[in-house]
């Protein structure tokens, strides 16, 4: 009797485990088993080698996306402009509400590339958004043609030595985000790094070059720390509301306008 009961309990236990694993696709993922991703993920996820984002990817609160050095992520642009975006953007997006750990190295950067079709527009995908994400690291990643390469909303990741090219916005810190933005190269976009709504990022040793609009934009409620950044070839180097923000003017050169104090729509040089 006891033996039967034990067998029955073991069988139930095994069935429950199998059912749990098979019914909860986000519980765990074996590396290399799946190379195409879309949808929401509540378990830890590891990307390596070659991966395709066929549509939006959402990393839920409590989950971690780790991207190993040398991974190439092919992004499939959304067909046309989505009418009912599932998450935040009508474009294909990587949205992280958990943790993001991009582990690129100088020898093996992580690359996001666009899968081109005849309908692909210049801005081809949304980019990476961290929305109330926890402790995240973005190292040695290469991003191009995103609406916003990296957008931080109430998130404070470390963004280290990324290469960001041809994006509408490079890095946006908003809603009390305080990322460390260190040694990145941002080139040929519309705008470079934006600090909005009470955000205080630390910008050190970045190169922000050849943007059609502002290289660095700081609204009245934000106080970034600007430390030895090279800012050149932009329409406006520093566009600043705060009048008391220290910066190193020697590295803000050769912009159409090196510093613009904001608030009078260009009508007076108020300091």
């Amino acid at each position: 009797m006891d033996m039967k009961l034990s067998c029955w309990k073991i069988t139930c236990f095994v069935v429950a485990i199998v059912a749990a694993v098979t019914s909860c696709p986000s519980a765990s993922y074996a590396v290399d088993m799946v190379q195409e991703y879309s949808g929401a993920f509540s378990g830890d996820l590891v990307w390596q080698e070659s991966v395709t984002m066929t549509a939006d990817v959402l990393i839920l609160k409590g989950a971690t996306l780790t991207i190993r050095a040398g991974t190439q992520i092919s992004v499939v642009p959304a067909e046309g402009t989505k009418i009912d975006p599932e998450y935040l953007s009508p474009l294909t997006e990587l949205l992280v509400r958990g943790k993001l750990d991009i582990q690129g190295t100088p020898e093996k950067p992580v690359r996001f590339i666009i899968i081109e079709t005849s309908e692909t527009e210049e801005i081809a995908w949304a980019g990476i958004t961290l929305d109330n994400a926890v402790e995240s690291y973005i190292q040695r990643v290469e991003l191009e043609r995103a609406d916003t390469a990296i957008r931080c909303v109430t998130s404070s990741p470390e963004i280290i030595e990324a290469k960001i090219a041809n994006c509408r916005y490079g890095i946006v810190a908003q809603q009390q985000s305080h990322p460390k933005i260190l040694g990145n190269i941002l080139v040929d976009g519309e705008g470079g790094i934006f600090s909005l709504s009470g955000s205080n990022p630390y910008l050190k040793n970045n190169q922000i070059i050849n943007h059609d609009e502002e290289a660095v934009f700081v609204d009245a409620s934000s106080r970034p720390w600007l430390d030895r950044n090279t800012i050149k070839g932009n329409a406006i180097g520093l566009a600043l509301y705060p009048r008391d923000l220290p910066y190193d003017l020697t590295a803000v050169t050769d912009n159409q306008e090196n510093v613009r104090w904001l608030g009078r729509q260009g009508q007076a040089d108020v300091k």
Binding site: F217, D219, A239, L262, R264, Q265
Partner: peptide
């Protein structure tokens, strides 16, 4: 913060508005 109006290949009437104290441009 950046501008009161950003106009991109639109057409129509834009009149009697108050455009003041915007950041970079009106």
């Amino acid at each position: 913060g950046r501008a009161g109006v950003r106009w991109l290949n639109s057409k129509g009437r834009f009149a009697r508005n108050m455009i003041a104290d915007n950041g970079v441009y009106g």
